[in-house]
Design a protein around this nucleic acid. Structure first.
Lengths: 341, 341
DNA sequence: TTGTAGGCGTTATCAT
DNA sequence: ATGATAACGCCTACAA
């Protein structure tokens, strides 16, 4: 492979000029640039990014740490990050952790190892370095999305899940429901807790008492929504609506209801959360809260770019909150028929 | 940040020994290794991957080029690649192309620029370099998945979509259907053509004549499946089954049928393709063909590792074909009722 | 506007 | 088993 020296020789200039022609063309005479570009085309030259990175001490990569990408919420998030990264000449390194904290910590150390310049997190656990900042070396640029407790001091982007959940419950209450069940996410995740507390807030506002007997816990998967729905149905014959902490579980719940022959929304109203496109084509189409997932990724990447530009502004930990909105489809309606036991 | 020189000094050895302790410990005396490891822990040393890469002429990254990751099929594929990459100390660089050939070609040139060692493709178009191999420099390691025509000479992994489609049609024919519609993918994609020809093969085997009037084209999206279903319904009152070229479109079709009040499977049988987990929880659950998407990614990454190990074996372009299998759920049944006009 | 040269942090070759 | 040292290819003062 040709290198910058070859180009310099062929173009009859010094390597410095070639380097400048590539990175700061304004400093080079147009005629010279032309000769250099000719040489580049001629020799099929491609700058060695490793060498440049070594010299400039950065890789132009950003790690995205997620438990798994095999899930529409996460992949939309990653897509958003990639969009902005690409537009800014950065690359996305995929860091799948499977929820393992050691793996996550290893990804963090890749930053010190210059494999990446920073990391965007969509994880339920924080890497150790956040709680134990390094004394000698400096803190790597980190951006958090969605999942984290309020006391950490990272730049972060999220939606107001608390209010969003309350909003859904409000919608059901307005329709006339007075007994509203919930299927939550795993309660070791901050996001799940937030959505659960929002559910309770919604009930409070509607002057409905919380009944723990009709709160079931899932793990955000279709199957867990299905299972949780069956558990609720068996536990209580009275409730007429159920709010699920994400669309996947809501779709699972829909499937369970269909199997039990309980009609939605006549006998049971069901709501989701996230607004996956699958929810728009379920039977019936799912009432849900739109979460701007792609935009969350984009905002996170922008925060990352900010951190990268101002390495010392660590304390300027900004928080971006993106708007949600209620999407009413056909899975919710006023309670009509009594459910048959 | 501490570097290898610092470690050498603190441990009282040369840089060469430190390097060896890290990469080939068997060549270093255990006692020495211990001193080195102590120094590493002490100084919080992390090897600079950029420097190592420059020296060794590789980045340990592999690019995955996909039109979009925001889709369960693709994300499963990427997850499979990441699994194997991680196990082999390689990283996945996400290359989203949005179907743009220039973007794709740029990703290819990143290999020459040492940002990555090779590329795995899940695209409907091939990068230029495949048709015009470079004369001076050597061909970058490329692995293709699923989408490509048979005449190219890349290592590749795929399923037998042709037979799989025929299998689905066979299933419907066995149930007694004689008028079977199809919703295909975009016909500029090889994968779509393959699935379409498999559909025709299935009809042939069942001695059913092909009727182009009940073949509609979609773009693999939910919405397009929904739209295509409505078009078919309006065009022909007779058919009793429809096979869709992927699960997303089948789910869209299900939604259209539900809206028209046509019951599945009593009045209409519907089949999908891919076996997304959403299909298992639709109403009714979707009969489909299981495609081992994650495994396809894993196999592709293994082919990549092979190519990387034997840079000259370009001609040894292996092809891996992974098995599919029919998943019969409740969206297919013997034709019963007549559809109402 | 252009050139010279030092150095980024490693690995690998060749000695010892 | 260990050490000295020359690359790897680029960027960026500094000099001209």
């Amino acid at each position: 492979m040709a290198n910058i020296k070859d180009i310099a020789r062929v173009a009859g200039v010094s390597v410095a000029t070639v380097s400048r022609a590539l990175s700061t063309p304004s400093l080079v005479r147009p005629a010279t640039i032309e000769r250099i570009e000719a040489a580049i085309a001629d020799l099929n030259y491609e700058p060695n990014h490793l060498a440049a990175g070594l010299r400039r001490q950065r890789s132009d990569n950003v790690i995205v740490a997620v438990p798994s990408i095999f899930n529409p919420f996460t992949s939309a998030f990653v897509e958003g990050i990639e969009n902005v990264a690409r537009a800014n000449k950065m690359r996305v390194l995929l860091g799948i952790t499977e929820g393992d904290i050691d793996t996550l910590n290893k990804y963090v150390s890749m930053i010190a190892g210059k494999q990446a310049d920073g990391m965007i997190l969509l994880e339920k656990t924080l890497p150790d370095i956040v709680r134990n900042p390094p004394t000698k070396s400096k803190m790597p640029p980190l951006v958090a999305a969605c999942e984290y407790p309020p006391d950490i001091t990272l730049p972060r982007v999220r939606t107001d899940d608390h209010e969003a959940s309350a909003l859904v419950v409000g919608h059901l209450a307005e329709l006339g429901h007075t007994r509203i069940a919930a299927i939550t996410g795993p309660l070791d995740q901050f996001m799940s807790k937030d959505r659960l507390s929002g559910y309770k807030l919604g009930l409070l506002r509607a002057r409905i008492e919380v009944d723990e007997a009709i709160i079931a816990t899932g793990d955000f998967s279709l199957q867990s929504g299905y299972d949780a729905m069956l558990r609720l149905l068996d536990a209580d014959p009275q409730f007429t609506a159920v709010t699920c902490a994400n669309d996947e579980m809501a779709l699972g719940a829909l499937s369970a209801l269909q199997q039990r022959g309980i009609s939605v929304p006549d006998e049971m109203s069901v709501t989701g959360f996230d607004d996956l496109r699958f929810g728009a084509f379920s039977s019936p189409p799912l009432t849900t809260v739109h979460i701007p997932t792609v935009e969350i990724g984009e905002a996170a990447m922008r925060l990352m770019l900010d951190s990268l530009l101002q390495p010392d502004q660590v304390s300027a930990s900004r928080e971006v909150i993106l708007p949600h909105r209620l999407i009413v489809r056909q899975s919710t309606a006023a309670p009509k028929k009594r459910r048959k036991a």
